[in-house]
Design a protein around this nucleic acid. Structure first.
Length: 346
DNA sequence: ACGAATGATTCATC
DNA sequence: GATGAATCATTCGT
C-alpha cells in the first residue's frame, strides 16, 4: 500500500500530450470497447470518493482500502496531480513570507519588560524592582505594597504561562493532526510537502493571532495593576522626625549654597534612610519654599543655625572628635551660620 | 471639616 | 541632567 505514488513532487514529469487534463496512459485506449469501460471505472471511483464521507467509519475505511487497490486509482491520481500542479502554480507566490507583526513585537517587548514573559525570577521582576527603587523604598510600610504588587504580577504571569502552554499544546496537537490527515490524504490526492508546510504555517498564524489576544489582555492586566501600584506609590508618607532634622540641619548650615553634591546627597540619603531622589526632591521643595517665604522660616533657620554652631563648638573643644552629623564634609562652611542666615534673609 | 504642611510629579528653562 | 516653579495628592494639626 505504501509503495504507490504519494506526494506530487514525484509526478512532476507526467505528460499531457494528448487530451488536456488526461495523462497519456489514460488516453491510449480511446475508441475501443475498453474506453467506455474505463470511463465507467473512473465514474465509479469519483462517485465513491464523493460519497465516502457519508459512510460510517468502518465502511469508509474499507472503501478507502478498496479505492487504493483499484486498478484505475494511479491514473486518477495522476490526473489530480496534473490539475493540482496547475492550480498550485496560481496559488504559489500569493502568500509570501510576511514581516513580523509590529504589534506582536510591541506586546512581546512589553511583556518581557514587565517581567511576565521573561525568565522566572522568583516572583520578582525588573519592573517591580524599578518601581521599588523609584518609590523611595523607605521603611517597611511600602514593602507590603510591593509584595502585593509582586503577588498580583506573578499571578498574572502564571495565568499567562498556563494559557500560553495550553495554546501551544493545542496548536501542536492540531498541527500534528492536520499533518497526519494530509499525509493520509496524500494517498488519494496530490499533496506536496510544501503544501503541508504552508498549511502548518496557516495553522500557526491562526494560533499566534489567538496568542496575540492573550498577550494583549495580559498587557492590559499588567497596565491596570501597574497604574494601581503607581497610584499607591503616590500615597506619600512624611519622613520621620530624625530624617527631617538631618535634612534641615544640612540645609540651614549650607544656606548660602543649599545645593548638596551628589556625594552629600548620598550621605544624607543613607542617614535618613531615604533615596537620593527623595533628598533631591526635599531640597528642591525646601529651596523654593524657603525663598518664597523667608520670614516664615526665620525661626526654624535660627534654631538649626544655633544647633549647628553648638555642634561645631563641641567638635572643636573635643579636638579630634568625629564630624558633626549635620556637616559631614563641609566644616569650612559652618563658620558663622547665624550671620549667613541673616545675610540671606536680607 | 478645614487649611497648612509636605513629598512627589510635571513642565519649562538653562 | 539639574533646577525652578507650579501643581497634585496626601498627611497632619486644629
Amino acid at each position: 500500500m505504501d509503495e504507490q505514488p504519494r506526494l506530487m513532487h514525484s509526478h512532476t514529469g507526467v505528460g499531457m500530450a494528448g487530451h488536456p487534463g488526461l495523462p497519456q496512459h489514460m488516453q491510449e485506449g480511446t475508441g475501443g470497447t475498453d474506453g467506455d469501460g474505463r470511463k465507467q471505472d473512473i465514474g465509479d471511483i469519483l462517485q465513491q470518493i464523493m460519497t465516502i464521507t457519508d459512510q460510517s467509519l468502518d465502511e469508509a475505511q474499507a472503501r478507502k482500502h478498496a479505492l487504493n487497490c483499484h486498478r484505475m486509482k494511479p491514473a486518477l491520481f495522476n490526473v489530480l496531480c496534473e490539475i493540482k500542479e496547475k492550480t498550485v502554480l496560481s496559488i504559489r507566490g500569493a502568500q509570501e513570507e510576511e514581516p513580523p507583526d509590529p504589534q506582536l513585537m510591541r506586546l512581546d517587548n512589553m511583556l518581557l519588560a514587565e517581567g511576565v514573559s521573561g525568565p522566572e525570577k522568583g516572583g520578582g521582576s525588573a519592573a517591580a524592582a524599578a518601581a521599588a527603587a523609584a518609590s523611595g523604598g523607605a521603611g517597611a510600610d511600602n514593602s507590603a505594597e510591593h509584595s502585593d504588587y509582586r503577588a498580583k504580577l506573578s499571578q498574572i504571569r502564571q495565568i499567562y504561562h498556563t494559557e500560553l502552554e495550553k495554546y501551544e499544546q493545542a496548536c501542536n496537537e492540531f498541527t500534528t493532526h492536520v499533518m497526519n490527515l494530509l499525509r493520509e490524504q496524500s494517498r488519494t490526492r496530490p499533496i506536496s510537502p510544501k503544501e503541508i508546510e504552508r498549511m502548518v504555517n496557516i495553522i500557526h498564524r491562526k494560533f499566534s493571532s489567538i496568542q496575540m489576544q492573550l498577550k494583549q489582555s495580559t498587557c492590559e492586566a499588567v497596565m491596570i495593576l501597574r497604574s494601581r501600584f503607581l497610584d499607591a506609590r503616590r500615597k506619600r508618607r512624611n519622613f520621620n522626625k530624625q530624617a527631617t532634622e538631618i535634612l534641615n540641619e544640612y540645609f540651614y548650615s549650607h544656606l548660602s549654597n543649599p545645593y548638596p553634591s551628589e556625594e552629600a546627597k548620598e550621605e544624607l540619603a543613607k542617614k535618613c534612610a531615604i533615596t537620593v531622589a527623595q533628598v533631591s526632591n526635599w531640597f528642591g521643595n525646601k529651596r523654593i519654599r524657603y525663598k518664597k517665604n523667608i520670614g516664615k522660616f526665620q525661626e526654624e533657620a535660627n534654631m538649626y543655625a544655633a544647633r549647628t554652631a553648638v555642634n561645631a563648638a563641641n567638635a572643636s573643644s573635643h579636638g579630634s572628635q568625629a564630624n558633626s552629623p549635620s556637616t559631614p564634609n563641609s566644616a569650612g562652611e559652618t563658620g558663622s551660620p547665624c550671620q549667613k542666615v541673616l545675610k540671606e534673609k536680607e
